[in-house]
Amino acid sequence: MYDVLDPDSERGRIYRSLVSHPGAPAGALAASTGLSEHAVRKLLAELAAADVVVTTDQEPDGWEALSPLYVVESLLQREAARRTGLRQAGAELERLYRVARRESGQYGALEVVEGASRVLAAVRRLQFSARREVRVIDVPPYTGAPDYYPSQEDLQRERMAAGIAYRVIYHGSAYDDPIAGPNMARMIEAGEQARTLDEAPLKLAFGDDELAVLTLAGDDRAEVIALLVRPSGLFRALSNVFEALWRLAVPASTAGIGTQIDARDRQILTLMASGATDEAIARRLGLGRRTVVRRVSALLTRLGATTRFQAGVQAARRGWL
């Protein structure tokens, strides 16, 4: 009955005609809608049963449309009831699904996916379905067809433009990787929140709090496999692992990648890494405190660091120390 508001449907044409011509008889409605009178009477009976139109005593065989606001509210209430029924049915089926798999020795929150193409497709679906945030731990090996990475960048840009936040932890070797390095630089410039962590332990992606994809080596096989993990105790544990690693990771930056620094900045970085204050660095190098503060701020920006410790780690990774 939802097509009653569609002006191109038969019910919609009749209802719209009655809105404009209250009290119109079936014959007049047939003429205005281009339908046969038999079809109009059949459709009027259906609309009356749905509480959309009523007969009127003012005209012989006359019909009256009920208020569009009333009709819309009624349709919305029916749709809400239908959705509630669907959710209840789905929840009951989900319980049966999980019970059946527990009884068969399976863990209902897990699904195994085999093959690089299927794993990558699962990660793409995860990003498409996310409504708030995508979290990723990206570690070698980097798999996929040659066109995967450009298409992944396009997808990520599209999702970020739609308001989806991306937080990514890269392996410490990402800067030197011909695949991950340029990809990371472009995504950071596009708005990705990125951090790096030496020896990140696993390849993992989250779509909101609804789905995780944990990618694993195939052990004794060359094939890639992944575990699709849905909300469960295991999901919460993996999410907590990500957040713990995120706190440990160092903010990544594309500023200054591949460039060198002068001897004075290298001295400042070395003293910063040893814990020296701006005043101590100034005294040690014979510089003014303001000069040191300015150069320290510039180094932090180039390294994408928020603390002196992070700056030291980033500088060491880039071979500046």
Rank of each mutant, 00 (worst) to 15 (best):
L211Y: 00
L214H: 11
D219M: 13
Y175S: 05
V119L: 04
I179R: 08
G181N: 09
A174K: 00
H171D: 14
E189Q: 13
E103V: 15
E210M: 02
Y175A: 09
Y107V: 13
R98T: 01
I164A: 03
E210N: 02
T215Y: 01
L120Q: 07
M187A: 14
A165K: 14
M187C: 09
A145K: 09
D154T: 12
T143K: 13
E103A: 15
V139S: 02
V224Y: 00
D177K: 05
R159E: 02
L126P: 05
K203L: 08
L126F: 03
D208Q: 02
K203A: 09
A180N: 03
E210Y: 00
P150D: 06
E92Q: 12
S151H: 10
F128Y: 14
R159C: 04
A122T: 12
A130W: 04
D220I: 12
E133M: 11
Y107C: 05
D209G: 04
E92K: 13
R135E: 07
E189C: 07
P178S: 06
Y149T: 09
T143V: 15
I164K: 02
Y142H: 15
P141T: 10
A180Q: 13
P182Y: 10
L211W: 00
P141V: 10
R95G: 05
R125M: 09
L214E: 03
V168L: 08
A222Q: 10
V136A: 09
V112G: 01
G108S: 14
D198P: 07
N183K: 09
Q193D: 14
E133H: 08
G105I: 04
Y142L: 15
S151D: 13
R118H: 12
F128N: 11
R132Y: 07
V99T: 11
A205I: 01
L120P: 01
K203Q: 09
M160W: 12
R101L: 14
Q127R: 13
A194N: 05
V119G: 01
L120M: 07
A91N: 13
R195E: 02
D138T: 03
G172C: 02
P201W: 10
L214S: 03
G181V: 10
A165V: 15
A222K: 09
V168T: 13
L204G: 00
Q193W: 07
A145M: 04
E111R: 15
Y166C: 04
R125A: 12
S117Q: 14
A121L: 12
K203V: 00
Y148E: 07
I164F: 04
E189D: 12
L204N: 01
P146K: 11
R157S: 04
A217W: 07
V113I: 15
V123H: 01
E111P: 06
I164G: 03
R135Y: 05
D209A: 08
A200H: 03
A145P: 06
P150V: 10
Q193E: 15
L197N: 02
R95Q: 11
